[in-house]
Write a protein that binds this DNA or RNA. Structure first.
Length: 582
DNA sequence: CCTCGCAGGAGGGGGGATCGTCGGATCCC
């Protein structure tokens, strides 16, 4: 039982309780616990074994007991009992946008609906329209909601969401009367997956903007169109919310709509203790017992986002840190990290060429690196056991390394390092001979086979692989593909300890399908004193632009430039890579 | 259900925007 399983059970409990119209705070407790467990960096199991569950915010004795039961038995009595309730079948309906608990219960009572399929059929046959309180429009909305539900399970990758959002910002930003337009929400925080896109605008010409927004070419549905808020669905299935705000409230709104929810709650808490109230409209004085905090006379600020922080005595907290995972405490103590930025990156050390499965030549990759302002790049093609990717053997690598050296002599302004992405075989050996590896400037070790090994074996395999004195970096350390493939089973803590011992850097693959290490792992690496190397693993020159997603993930993991080896100047990088330096 | 702060019990984040229908449900960070 893993964190995600515990979280799913808690969410399920919350759904059923909601259908039963239970106490809303009880429901919120389960939802909150689900989120906390889902997002926690370590294993909930080890927290349980350490007896520290109840020290987690939002987990008390009752939830801790249930977690223990779930870890030990795979389920919990309370949840199983709830599933006996006739309302249980309705939980699926809650995932249909526009259908909440009230409506779901009504649909069951009045039309015998017990599943999404039932609902669709009943709606098509016009049977729900006759129910009191439901009309033609709601019927249509429900059918649309079902369509959306079917099309769009799971979330969007940050790279996809960002592409849509930036196009919209460009389109709407060009309209006269738009004086400010920004991306907010989880996309601004650069989470690895995005539920929907939030965009905020300052403007006085509401109609024109809403017209432009709702009539964009890729809009397939307009869910809402108001004076200050509109929502649309794009052809890809992603929802975009647009809000128009007065200049005076913009900063407070940016803070509010950037989230995260947990961060906002903690900020409000803090404000409250200081006799203030933070809302999406600004920061207000709360005087005595009167709870009329919104009056203009009580307003303390909110035009700029910085105001919100300043008024509660804090420095600006970068959006990527706003997860209520210690950033407010760090801000208070003045110990916020000085986060890495794209401009700090001096090179990309994991690149493929047409020698194996890449599309471009060595020179073309170098040119792209030069265009991005890099001082160096590393060419690291696949090794022979990855046949499908045209992996090279020892002889071929001998030639390839010569070709890289030759290319390096021809370019100026950028150093091309010769390297290999070498496979770690199932038994932990590397599939290229040590003599060849020793000729390289950089060796990246990677797992590309036998993903289903038991945890202990996989951990041992990786540790043996990176114990080879020729290895500098461990590629995509958990092997996951976002929304596609779970990470393989591995004890990252042990891997980090080994990486620390052998002075190996762990890769943060910036490829938006991977983002591996992920944010919380980066933070753990930093705390373990393990260096990170942010690479794009590009198979074509343009993919090197994915570096931004790696940097964003590193920022979410609290990394500073000094934690990341490819921020080093070339000489320092070479010292890190040289065996003497290690 | 949890947390706080008191030792049993109170209070909990919360209000606005929108839609569709006629007082209310859903959604949002």
């Amino acid at each position: 039982m893993k964190n995600i399983d515990v979280a799913r059970i808690f969410d399920e409990i919350a759904d059923i309780l909601e259908l039963k119209d239970e106490n809303r705070f009880r429901i919120r407790s389960y939802r909150r616990a689900a989120r906390v467990v889902r997002d926690m960096p370590g294993d909930v199991k080890s927290l349980l074994e350490a007896g520290e569950l109840t020290s987690v915010q939002g987990i008390g004795s009752s939830l801790a007991e249930k977690i223990e039961e779930i870890i030990n038995t795979g389920t919990c009595r309370f949840c199983e009992d709830l599933k006996e309730d006739p309302l249980y079948s309705l939980t699926a309906l809650l995932s249909v946008p526009g259908v909440g608990a009230r409506l779901a219960v009504k649909l069951k009572k009045e039309a015998g609906v017990a599943s999404v399929d039932d609902l669709e059929q009943a709606a098509r046959e016009g049977r729900i329209r006759s129910i009191e309180g439901i009309g033609e429009k709601l019927e249509e909305k429900i059918l649309k909601g079902i369509e959306q539900y079917r099309r769009n399970v799971g979330r969007f990758k940050v790279s996809d969401a960002l592409a849509y959002a930036e196009a919209i910002v460009k389109t709407l930003g060009a309209i006269k009367g738009v004086s400010q337009i920004d991306i907010a929400g989880s996309l601004r925080r650069m989470k690895e997956t995005i539920g929907d896109i939030d965009i905020l605008v300052i403007s006085k010409s509401s109609h024109e903007i809403m017209d432009a927004f709702t009539s964009m070419g890729n809009v397939t549905d307009v869910l809402a169109r108001g004076e200050t808020k509109s929502s649309v669905i794009l052809g890809s299935g992603i929802q975009v919310d647009l809000r128009i705000l007065p200049k005076s409230d913009y900063g407070a709104a940016m803070h509010y709509f950037t989230g995260s929810q947990d961060h906002n709650v903690a900020m409000r808490d803090r404000a409250k203790r200081m006799g203030l109230k933070i809302s999406e409209y600004g920061v207000f004085d709360v005087k005595g017992d009167e709870r009329r905090g919104d009056e203009a006379a009580n307003r303390r600020g909110g035009e700029r986002e910085e105001d919100v922080f300043k008024l509660v005595g804090l420095p600006f907290i970068p959006p990527e840190l706003r997860e209520n995972s210690g950033e407010i405490e760090a801000a208070e103590k003045g110990t916020l990290p000085k986060l890495i930025e794209p401009r700090h990156i001096k090179g990309d050390l994991h690149l493929h060429t047409d020698a194996s499965d890449g599309r471009n030549s060595i020179a073309e990759m170098a040119h792209q690196g030069w265009e991005m302002g890099y001082k160096y790049i590393g060419i690291t093609d696949h090794s022979k056991s990855l046949r499908i990717a045209g992996g090279l053997d020892e002889v071929e690598f001998g030639e390839h390394i010569k070709a890289i050296r030759a290319a390096n002599r021809k370019v100026s302004g950028i150093e091309i390092l010769a390297g290999i992405e070498v496979d770690i075989l199932p038994d932990g050996r590397l599939d290229i001979a040590d003599e060849v590896l020793a000729e390289c400037d950089i060796v990246i070790a990677a797992i590309h086979s036998r993903f289903n090994m038991p945890r202990d074996e996989m951990t041992g395999r990786i540790i043996k692989g990176i114990s080879n004195a020729n290895v500098h970096v461990l590629a995509h350390p958990t092997g996951r593909l976002i929304n596609e493939r779970d990470p393989y089973e591995v004890d990252l803590e042990k891997v980090m300890a080994a990486a620390h011992e052998h002075k190996i850097a762990l890769e943060l693959s910036a490829h938006p399908d991977r983002l591996d290490l992920k944010d919380s792992h980066c933070r753990a690496a930093r705390e373990a004193g393990v260096k990170v190397c942010i690479n794009t693993d590009s198979h074509a020159d343009r993919q090197m632009l994915n570096m931004r997603f790696g940097v964003a993930t590193a920022r979410r993991g609290w990394l500073e430039p000094g934690d990341v080896i490819n921020t080093y100047p070339l000489a320092k990088l070479k010292r890190f890579l040289s065996r003497q330096g290690r």
